[in-house]
């Protein structure tokens, strides 16, 4: 009895502390982040044109979206893009982080170089990649030298435009993930590796049985944030393809942008954003429930 009481008193004191700790962030978060989202949710039920007109239209926007071919295409493109880029950018990120973690002279130089795609401006990245991917650009010259007589037209064909964007996106985000994973690698206790060695594990076995489980909270973080940012991909589309050719690289965020800022249909655009939210939330929830199976805290 007494023990139970002290636990509940202890829990209560934790709640007070928790409130105090959360407060500084929570106040601003509710005001600057949650409130605008809430407003957008209301807007999604209206026909707001960005100025005075704002009539309540119920779920009409949501219903019409599903018969909008551009919306459907952008949804498909976004899903494909996410399915391709998330696993690859994390897998490459892990490999890169392991390389960055090597204890060899000069590794700091490599670590800095691997970070460069992160800091190079999107405009420059868009420019240089469109040159690299040009019909007679360096990449196709390599492919032709390797015996491919009819290399892809990359960003100027509907067939390869999305792939091109995916390549650049993976190229850019693997360094981002690598930095986060590198920080996670540092948290792994060296004792564990020594124990594995004593048990006769080779490098691969200790990677699978020590590194990956110990890294799982970090990998989980990368998985969730990378998925969210892949669903919201925008900058790279603007810099490389503007959604084209045709609608081949039209993605959800680009659709939302066009509907609001070109067509002045803010209600419609907000509705699209909340459908997008529902989809991301669904996948995130799966990951959250799924994490108990593989994430090791």
């Amino acid at each position: 009895m007494a023990a139970k009481k002290s636990v509940s008193a202890y829990r209560k004191s934790q709640r007070k502390t928790a409130i105090l700790f959360l407060l500084p962030n929570l106040v601003g978060f509710l005001l600057f982040v949650v409130y605008p989202v809430f407003r957008a949710a209301i807007i999604s039920l209206t026909n707001w044109n960005g100025f005075k007109q704002m009539d309540f239209v119920g779920v009409r926007n949501y219903v019409s979206l599903f018969s909008d071919s551009t919306f459907i295409i952008s949804l498909q493109n976004t899903l494909i893009y996410t399915i391709v880029t998330v696993p690859l950018s994390i897998a490459f990120g892990i490999v890169m982080a392991l390389l960055m973690n090597l204890k060899i002279p000069g590794i700091k130089v490599f670590r800095t170089i691997y970070f460069l795609p992160q800091i190079t401006s999107m405009i420059a990245i868009g420019l240089v990649w469109s040159l690299v991917l040009a019909k007679y650009g360096p990449l196709n010259q390599i492919l032709m030298a390797l015996g491919n007589s009819d290399p892809p037209k990359w960003i100027s064909s509907t067939k390869y435009a999305l792939t091109s964007v995916e390549i650049v996106s993976i190229w850019r985000s693997m360094g981002y993930n690598a930095i986060i994973i590198l920080a996670g690698l540092q948290g792994i206790d060296a004792v564990l590796y020594e124990a594995a060695k004593l048990d006769g594990a080779n490098a691969w076995q200790s990677f699978v049985h020590v590194t990956i489980p110990m890294l799982s909270p970090t990998i989980f973080f990368c998985l969730v944030t990378q998925m969210i940012s892949s669903f919201k991909v925008f900058d790279i589309i603007i810099a490389m393809t503007q959604g084209g050719p045709g609608r081949a690289t039209n993605v959800l965020a680009y659709f939302v942008y066009n509907k609001s800022f070109v067509d002045s249909r803010f209600g419609y655009a907000s509705a699209a954003a909340f459908i997008m939210f529902a989809i991301i939330m669904f996948f995130t929830a799966i990951q959250f429930y799924g994490q108990k199976k593989w994430v090791n805290y």
């Binding site: 420019l127 469109s130 007679y136 960003i155 100027s156 490389m240 393809t241 050719p245």
Partner: peptide
């Protein structure tokens, strides 16, 4: 030039 050579910012 062909339009496919003029894609993007170039």
């Amino acid at each position: 030039p062909l339009y496919e050579d003029m894609a993007s910012d170039a």
